[in-house]
Design a binder for these strands. Structure first.
Lengths: 182, 182
DNA sequence: CGACGACCTGTCATATCTGACATGTCAGAG
DNA sequence: CTCTGACATGTCAGATATGACAGGTCGTCG
C-alpha cells in the first residue's frame, strides 16, 4: 500500500503526469520502493477516484497532469507522522547466509566476498551520485540526499561485514568435529 | 519465490514438520524473510510434489516429518552458488524520508529521532540475542550468528545516520528562502 | 513526407502474499 | 473425566505485484 503514498509524496512537490512520475520514480524511490508502470498508473487512477489527487491539466497524447489536493496533502502528512512504518526488511542475500553451511567453506567464503564486492560497488555508485547531483533544487531532492547517505552507509557497513564474515567461516567450520560432513 | 528455498534450507539441517519449521522460522528467518503459516504449508506440499523434499515419517495428529532429498540438496546448492540474489530492499521508513519536506522541520526531526530510537532498540535486542544464544549447535545457528551480526551493525549504522540526519534538517530547511511555505 | 524514437496511458493473466477461518488431536492438570 | 493449551495441517477470499502486451500520438531528422 505504500506506492499509494509514494505517488502522493511525489505529487506534493508539484504537478506531474504518470509518465513524469515514472521517470522520477526510477531515478529515486525505485531503489527503496520498486514499482512497475502498470502499478503506478493504476494507483494514480485510484488516488484520483478517492479525491487525494486531481487531473489539473490535460495535454497532447492523452497526457494527464495530476495535482495533489488538500485532502491528499493531509493524508500524506497523516501517513508520515501518525502511521508507524512497516519494519519488514526482506533480504534475499542475507537469507542465503543462513544456509552457507550446506555448500562448504570454499563456496561460503566466495559467496561472502562476492557480497562484499557488490556492496563496495554500490557504495561507489552512491558516492558518484552524491557527488554529481545538485541536491538543492527541491525539498524532495534535499531529503532524498539524506536517503542516499543512508544507503551509502549501509553499503559500506555491509561490505565491511561481508569481509569480516568471510574471515569467520574457517572458525565456524572447524569448531565442531571436522568430520561432520553433511 | 525465496520461501521455497528458505524451507529447503531449513530442512537441510535435518527432518522436521511444518509445525517445527514454523517455530524455527519465526525465531530466525522471519526477521529477514517473513512468511505466514499458510504460505509455509503450501510451499511444503509443492516442494514434496516436485521431489525436493519427502515425507520421511508420519506422527500423531497428522504430523508429517519432511526430509530433504538429494534433488533438494542439489537445488539448494544451485540456488546459493549460481543464482544471483534479488537486490530489492524495500524500506518504508526510508521512503518517508523523501517526503519529510512536506511536514515541516519539527515533524521531520521528530521522525528521524524516532527512527534513531527504533534502531537503537533493535540493536539492543540483537545484542541480547547474540549474548544469550548458544550459536554453536548447528551450521544453521553458526551462520545465523553472522546474520545477527549483520543486523546489529545495520541497526547501529541506521541509528547513527538518523541522529546525523536530524541535525541536517535545519540546514536543509534554511538553504532556500525561509518564506517558501507551500 | 516518411520513418523513428520518445511520449503516454492503459489492460490482463498469472503469481504471490496476507489474514482469517476451519478442523481436528493429544497430553497433562485439576 | 473434563478442560485447556499446545500440537498440527489445511482452505479460501481478497489484496498486491509482476511482466507482457496493446494501442495510440507527436516532433524532428533526413
Amino acid at each position: 500500500m505504500s506506492l499509494r503514498h509514494a505517488a502522493l509524496g511525489l505529487l506534493a512537490d508539484g504537478p506531474a503526469s504518470g509518465y513524469d512520475l515514472l521517470k522520477t520514480f526510477d531515478r529515486s524511490l525505485a531503489f527503496i520502493w520498486p514499482a512497475t508502470q502498470s502499478q503506478l498508473y493504476g494507483e494514480l487512477n485510484r488516488l484520483a477516484d478517492d479525491g487525494l489527487i486531481e487531473v489539473s491539466n490535460e495535454g497532447p497524447r492523452g497526457r494527464k497532469d495530476y495535482s495533489i489536493t488538500e485532502q491528499g496533502r493531509a493524508e500524506l502528512e497523516r501517513w508520515i507522522t501518525d502511521v508507524e512504518p512497516d519494519r519488514i526488511r526482506r533480504n534475499e542475500a542475507l537469507l542465503r547466509v543462513f544456509f552457507l553451511g550446506t555448500v562448504g567453506p570454499a563456496h561460503a567464503k566466495a559467496y561472502l566476498e562476492r557480497e562484499a564486492t557488490v556492496h563496495e560497488d554500490l557504495e561507489a555508485l552512491l558516492q558518484t551520485v552524491e557527488r554529481d547531483t545538485d541536491w538543492d533544487t527541491s525539498d524532495f531532492n534535499r531529503y532524498g540526499h539524506l536517503v542516499i547517505e543512508s544507503g551509502r552507509r549501509y553499503a559500506h557497513g555491509q561490505a565491511q561485514w561481508a569481509h569480516w564474515a568471510a574471515t569467520q567461516v574457517d572458525n565456524l567450520e572447524t569448531t565442531e568435529a571436522p568430520a561432520q560432513t553433511r
